[in-house]
Nucleic acid binder design. Structure first.
Length: 783
DNA sequence: GTGCAGTTTGCCTGC
DNA sequence: CAAACTGCAC
């Protein structure tokens, strides 16, 4: 049944949709799969469908669930819906998988076998919990590397497996299963859950509780899933629990799955593109709708993306087209060093800005967070405002985690992870030895560290008891207080503020702690806590504030989660990406992963080098390489008007200079869409007429795109770099543009002295003119 | 038990 | 290159 054309609201809603979009939006209430290419208006289709379903009265706000993958996407959806709908959208089941699982478990904590105030472990917490388990089992950390074990446990959970379900084929895997079991016991004892547990626990509760299952299946008539290609096995199974599983003979509700197999970039955390095909088959999707018209990018950008992704195998098949013209060519730049690359980025950014482009419309993308540093310092030194997403996030900073640990202990004193973090921070005379004793006592009696104090005598026992009293006192005195007061009191009473005040480098940390108070304040304002909910504030970056919305009343008692509990949840599920630096018109910096779902007028993709992008850990398997290619595809398709791609001959990594060869992905782009800002070079050693390039014996010479050398570490540029340095000593000349780590870009005015005494006078612009000893100062020439 | 200096080790991506 | 870890003097 199409919409009622007489309804004025819905016809306005549906105006300007293309036929495919319209078909998707108004799909009858049955399972549907939408293959939505990058920039094809996917989010618009999703939000419009939700609004259309609601406005035509086909479903009530409570009868609909929409799941996204990232917090960014969830926010985006809520913001857009908030603008389309006349009522507050916060109460609706719209959020990330993990956010919704949390909400579900908060409401049914008792059935799920959790304490009411269970805490959520982020990956760092989870890793230290694993470490404790391994230590407790007296196992060798060499043989059972905590990181790998944590990885193994998360992987098992994502497959829906409990310790008893894990494949055991040798003593090692046997032990792994035992560690997994011990980890689980420990988490249960402490009342904490990790990310994967949120999913698995809610899945199992639904699976095992028929009444609950019936309740939710009756409730949700429509479930919309964004980024379906990124779902893992468990998430798909979870979905079937809520929607009804056709394989079990259920009649499923209207699941509206939107995805793009070409943008599947989360295989490393269990994503299964195959879920799309499985869904189509299992849910007997009658009509698969493809959205292939791109509204975002100009032709050259799109052609580049299409050409690149066409090298992947086993695609569902889709080709983006646009009606915009070719636009600007894709510009490619080769830098001599990562510093020079940063200097070039800066220069191009300034030029775009002078040309009238907003800084916030420029994005700098990189494969891994470590690359942001050099770029950041270049921007910082030039005084260009920027904003970094991801990396060390706000709620993951050490001082913030310390403060949160105190808050978590107030909520749940059995949270041993938090207990260990702060029992002796700031120092209160409880050293390693005392803590070990306490751990032994607690383990022996099967109690938490907090409870274990009763079995610990002597001065150590007295000191721990004093710590417990501190926590208890804080719990009592903060009862019923506002979040701001609670946090301020904790910061003062714990001694955290005093501690950082005496630290040399403590000022920044104190500022972050103050920022934590602000974040809490903002959180309370936005969430509203049952009172009249406040309209979504939108900051200058177009993003809304925190979106916890986990304030569902308890299913049995009707009790509303305390502000503190809600805030702690918010801190665990959202890393607080937009706490700092919000506001001004700033250049956007993030990893390619973080950029998914976003778009910008100008995009710079940096570090297109073998070993980095594609990442060296990925090139050994075909699957890995294809995922890297999809990642590059995602990166390219973020750009609306201008796309720049850069690579560098050398790069600092692990404190050493690495010599890199340009990425194979550059050779996979269509030449006619490109413009090389620096001379295009063949893989070294393959002069004109040599065809196949050097060092690629596995490929015949006639291969159209010669494979890059097997190793990304080319010895040749290294030799070139050496000879350049040897011939001129320092490689500098007057008027040479240089880059300094601290002062940024400068121009050499004069040179004097030789060898170890060589000095250069450099004008750094806003940092003034300085004489630098070349044996000490690192000056990198910029071409 | 604390704090410092020296040494080692690791950086891929994220809810 | 830095964070994280280890060893040592107070």
């Amino acid at each position: 049944m199409p919409h009622d054309p007489a309804a004025p609201v819905s016809s306005r809603l549906l105006a300007n949709l293309n036929p495919e979009q319209l078909a998707a939006v108004t799909l009858p209430p049955e399972p549907g799969l939408i293959l939505a290419g990058a920039g094809s208006g996917k989010t618009r289709v999703l939000t419009t469908r939700i609004a259309w379903l609601l406005q035509t009265g086909q479903v009530s706000p409570g009868g609909l669930m929409a799941v996204t993958f990232t917090n960014k996407a969830a926010k985006e959806m809520l913001t857009r819906l908030g603008a389309m709908l006349p009522f507050n959208v916060r109460g609706m089941w719209i959020g990330t998988f993990h956010g919704l699982c949390n909400r579900f478990l908060r409401a049914h904590w008792k059935q799920a076998g959790l304490p009411q105030s269970f805490q959520i472990l982020d990956s760092g917490d989870s890793l230290s919990a694993v470490k404790r388990v391994i230590k407790g089992m007296k196992l060798d950390e060499e043989r059972f590397v905590p990181k790998q074990v944590a990885w193994f446990i998360a992987g098992a959970k994502e497959e829906g497996k409990r310790p008893k379900d894990v494949d055991v084929h040798d003593p090692h895997s046997q032990k792994l299963a035992e560690i997994y079991q011990a980890y689980e016991d420990q988490c249960q004892r402490e009342g904490v859950v990790d990310f994967a547990e949120l999913m698995l626990r809610s899945y199992e509760l639904m699976r095992d509780d028929a009444a609950l299952r019936q309740h939710y299946r009756h409730r949700f008539q429509h479930i919309l899933v964004d980024e379906f290609q990124d779902t893992n096995r468990l998430q798909y199974a979870w979905l079937k629990m809520f929607a009804g599983d056709p394989a079990q003979g259920d009649v499923p509700c209207a699941v509206f799955a939107v995805g793009d197999d070409d943008q599947s970039i989360y295989a490393f955390r269990g994503a299964r593109v195959g879920n799309m095909a499985d869904f189509e088959r299992e849910f007997r999707v009658a009509r698969l709708i493809k959205l292939e018209r791109n509204y975002r990018s100009f032709g050259n950008i799109l052609d580049s993306a299409n050409a690149l992704i066409s090298r992947n195998t086993g695609r569902l098949g889709k080709n983006l087209r646009t009606e915009a013209g070719p636009g600007e060519p894709v510009r490619i730049y080769e830098a001599t060093s990562d510093f020079a690359e940063a200097a070039w980025l800066l220069e191009e950014l300034q030029q775009l800005h002078r040309g009238g482009m907003a800084r916030s419309e420029c994005a700098l993308l990189y494969r891994s967070n470590a690359q942001s540093r050099v770029i950041e310092s270049a921007l910082f030194n030039a005084g260009v405002p920027y904003r970094v997403y991801g990396g060390l996030r706000f709620f993951e900073r050490a001082e913030v985690k310390h403060a949160l640990a105190y808050l978590r202990l107030i909520e749940n004193p059995n949270d041993d992870t938090s207990f260990l973090r702060v029992v002796n921070f700031p120092a209160r005379g409880i050293g390693t030895r005392s803590v070990e004793q306490l751990q032994e006592v607690a383990r022996a009696s099967g109690r938490s560290l907090y409870q274990g104090v009763s079995g610990l005598g002597g001065t150590a026992g007295a000191k721990v008891a004093a710590f417990n009293r501190l926590i208890d006192g804080l719990r009592a005195s903060t009862q019923g207080q506002t979040l701001r007061v609670i946090i301020e009191q904790v910061l003062a009473a714990s001694g955290l503020i005093d501690f950082y005040r005496t630290e040399k480098e403590g000022q920044d940390r104190i500022e972050n702690l103050e920022e934590l108070v602000n974040a809490a304040e903002a959180f309370v304002t936005i969430e509203g806590f049952g009172k009249d909910a406040v309209a979504l504030p939108v900051d200058e970056m177009g993003q809304t504030g925190p979106t916890a919305s986990e304030l569902l009343p308890d299913a049995e008692t009707g009790e509303i989660l305390s502000p503190l509990a809600a805030f702690l949840t918010h801190a665990a599920l959202e890393a607080g990406d937009n706490q700092a630096q919000a506001g001004q018109d700033a250049v956007q910096m993030m990893t390619v992963h973080a950029a998914k779902g976003l778009e910008f007028d100008a995009v710079f993709i940096t570090g297109l080098e073998e070993g980095l992008f594609p990442h060296e850990n990925s090139v050994t398997e075909a699957d890995g390489l294809e995922e890297e290619r999809r990642l590059m595809y995602v990166a390219i398709t973020r750009a609306r008007q201008r796309l720049y791609i850069s690579h560098s001959q050398t790069r600092m990594l692990h404190g050493q200079t690495r010599y890199n060869v340009k990425s194979r992905f550059l050779d996979e782009l269509p030449e006619e869409a490109l413009k090389w800002l620096t001379p295009k070079r063949q893989a070294f050693g393959s002069g004109a007429g040599f065809g196949g390039g050097y060092g690629a014996p596995s490929r015949p010479a006639w291969t159209p795109a010669p494979a890059p050398p097997p190793s990304w570490a080319s010895p040749v540029p290294a030799a070139m770099a050496r000879s350049a340095a040897e011939s001129s000593g320092h490689g500098l000349r007057p008027k040479q543009a240089v880059f300094h780590n601290k002062f940024g870009e400068g121009v050499v005015l004069a040179l004097e002295g030789k060898g170890a005494d060589a000095r250069a006078q450099v004008n750094f612009g806003r940092h003034g003119t300085k004489w630098l000893a070349l044996s000490v100062a690192k000056l990198t020439p910029i071409d």
